[in-house]
Design a protein around this nucleic acid. Structure first.
Lengths: 200, 200
DNA sequence: TTGAATTATGACTTTTAAGTCATTATAATA
DNA sequence: TATTATAATGACTTAAAAGTCATAATTCAA
């Protein structure tokens, strides 16, 4: 595996662009090479195989998003406030990378294409994020901000899925433009439901 | 396209079993034929192509589930009660067909494999279900059972995703056994969150 | 400057599985 | 029973794309 970081990044970003354009299901190594302006063999100098390439596209994207969210969350004190900035930051990130996430979510890429090992890391990332949320909820239960009878890991997992499904809902309804108004609404609707439920 | 219903059903149920065993990504027409104990060419007498076969496996499964839920829901009057039986019935259905849904959810099959046309019908089914829920929520808003400031279509969509993600959560944590205790808990946790939120 | 080491190339091989169709078997009908 | 129509077969064709590797280009070190 060669060490040239610039070329590694070039292949990675070309793949990401391609995925936005044509989706995962049509992604081929030939197209990746063409998009990056290099030969197919070169791709294999930097990535073990196609699975490795996709896994790295997904994992670098996730780490970038997770770091960003963690930074913002750490600036808040109350658990309700932490959840608020978490949702806000997550939705913002999704909208800023909306064409990528549109493909991820609507194509439901997810783990189908990945081999066993990459499937596991996919689920591990999901778990790391929902565990992070679960800890906030646990603290909120201790502090009295949240109900005492919650199953915090499940609740954490549920919030992740609410965020995701809200974005899917918008993408399906063609609300893909990233205007602040829209983002503010989505964020509030998720938080409203998650914090207060639908009953009066 | 031949008319023999028994053979049609045989291929359909063999495919479903196979999907449970090996997942969508490894499903081949050769394996389907072998599982059904017939020749590959025969499969093509009853289904246009692989996409058609998968689409029919998914759509018949969905219709069965949706009918069952609608029947139960129609027996209730209050909107809260309707949502309660809806969630309960949906979770029950998922657990009764847990190996199928485990594959569907964890492999995240969804639409990846399907061609454009089938992708659309996949999203249409999802929409039919969330619209159905959305109508219940709208009635509940009118009757005063629910808050007035809800975005009912989005809320409907969110409930669908809460149900799905709860099942995924259990499957990921190996809680796949279908004991009534477990099902009761899951149902209650979903409803608790959706109706009341996490704050006190 | 030269030759060794590294990186890049893309035509080629391999694999896999979808879909076809000439042939055969079975069922229906007269 | 003979003839026609329908259903079934599976070897074969086709297609697509992953992955390889002998060769070429470039970079580096002496």
């Amino acid at each position: 595996m060669s060490e040239n970081t610039a070329k590694f990044e070039l292949i990675l970003s070309s793949s990401k662009k391609l995925i936005e354009e044509i989706g995962f299901s049509s992604l081929t190594m030939d197209k990746v090479a063409q998009k990056a302006g290099i030969a197919k063999g070169t791709v294999y100098l930097y990535f073990k195989d196609k699975d490795d390439l996709i896994e790295k596209v997904l994992s670098t994207g996730f780490e970038r998003m997770f770091d960003r969210i963690k930074r913002k969350v750490s600036e808040e004190n109350g658990m309700v406030d932490k959840l608020k900035v978490l949702v806000n930051e997550n939705i913002n990130h999704i909208y800023e990378n909306r064409y990528f996430f549109k493909t991820i979510f609507l194509d439901e890429v997810n783990v189908v294409f990945l081999k066993k090992k990459s499937k596991e890391s996919f689920n591990l990332r999901r778990k790391r994020y929902s565990d992070f949320i679960s800890e906030i909820i646990k603290s909120g239960m201790k502090s009295g901000e949240f109900r005492q009878d919650l199953n915090s890991p499940r609740a954490g997992y549920m919030l992740v899925s609410l965020i995701k499904s809200s974005a899917i809902y918008d993408f399906l309804n063609e609300k893909i433009e990233s205007n602040p108004e829209n983002i503010k609404n989505v964020t509030e609707e998720i938080l409203n439901l998650f914090l207060r439920g639908i009953t009066r």
